[in-house]
Each structure stands twice: as structure tokens, then as C-alpha cells.
């Protein structure tokens, strides 16, 4: 399978809105071993001036990946998901994600850099709330590893 760069710059339709629940925040915070009370205790969050529970800084990936899936599943891009490893991630928070938010994520395929028979695919996902305010920008790069048999440059590695 080979990667096509024709879709560079393409913006995919937004994913179905994601409603941020207290339980999702607590479950995610527990999974990343974060005991900070603003992730778990509503009163503690309010004491620090927040409307409700605060999502951990990397929680936005949960919302973003639902939109990013459109890129991985796009046959015109041609990503073999079994050969994908995550290369980098960046969250720029315009305001913190809180329980009670309804968030919409839309992904743009920013860049495809072909490397031998593999490629680095970089996406930008804009997360906005129910009022249309921009809340978080998520940059993510996937390394699609070359299939050793196809790779004439010898670049296939984990």
C-alpha cells in the first residue's frame, strides 16, 4: 500500500459532538494516574474558580482522535493502520476543557511527508465548544512505517 499526498490541505467534516462528562474526566485522570482534586472533586474544582471538573491537559486527545479517524480511514490517503505508530502530539489550550462542555472537533490534513515507502502524516484538529469558541488546537503526527518488503530505501523500522 502506498501513501498519496493528494489530500494535503483537505479539511474533513467535524466528528459528532462530544459531551464531556464528569465520569469521563475522572476515568481518564485515573488512567493517567493523576490524583489532582480538580479532576475528581467538583467542590475542589470550584474552589480554584472552575465551573466544573477540569480535564487533564492531554484529555483533548479523546475528542481529537474521533475527528482524526477520518484521515486514517480515508482510502484516498491510503494509510495501513497496522503500520502506524504515533510520532508526536501537541495540545494548545485556549481555555481548559471542563465537564459539561459539548465539543466539536474538525481535522485538517496539514502535511504528508513521504519517506521511502513510509510517511509522516501530520494533522491539525480544532476543537470548539457549543458557543463556537475555539478551545484547543491539537497537532498530531503519525509515522506510517514502511513495509520492509516494499521499502527499497531500507527505512523500515519500529
Amino acid at each position: 500500500m502506498s501513501i498519496s499526498t493528494a489530500r494535503e490541505g483537505h479539511q474533513y467534516p467535524p466528528a459528532h459532538p462530544y459531551q464531556v462528562s464528569r465520569e469521563a474526566i475522572r476515568e481518564f485522570a485515573t488512567a493517567v494516574k493523576s490524583q489532582h482534586p480538580v479532576h475528581h472533586d467538583v467542590d475542589a474544582a470550584r474552589e480554584l474558580g472552575h465551573r466544573d471538573l477540569v480535564a487533564p491537559p492531554s484529555f483533548a486527545v479523546v475528542v481529537a482522535q474521533r475527528a482524526e479517524a477520518a484521515v486514517v480511514q480515508d482510502p484516498e490517503v491510503g494509510i495501513d493502520f497496522s503500520r502506524v505508530v504515533h510520532a508526536d502530539e501537541r495540545f494548545t489550550h485556549h481555555s481548559p476543557i471542563l465537564a459539561g462542555d459539548t465539543l466539536t472537533a474538525a481535522t485538517t490534513l496539514d502535511r504528508i511527508r513521504v519517506m521511502g515507502a513510509g510517511a509522516m502524516v501530520t494533522t491539525r484538529t480544532e476543537i470548539a465548544d457549543q458557543d463556537g469558541a475555539s478551545r484547543c488546537t491539537v497537532l498530531s503526527s503519525l509515522l506510517v512505517r514502511a513495509d520492509e518488503e516494499d521499502d527499497e530505501t531500507g527505512g523500515g523500522r519500529a
Binding site: 494516574k33 493523576s34 489532582h36 477540569v54 491537559p57 492531554s58 508526536d88 489550550h93
Partner: peptide, 23 residues
Amino acid sequence: MGLTVDLVSEWAGDPAAVVDYQA
């Protein structure tokens, strides 16, 4: 990445203070 940033959240006193995070 998620485990790592908790060190910063605790140091800052409020995870909402983390405005940008990359790795």
C-alpha cells in the same frame, strides 16, 4: 505523555494552568 504532565499540574497547583503541552 498523560502520566508525565501530572508532575507539572501538581507543581503549578492547577492543571488548567497548562496552556500548551507537546512531546
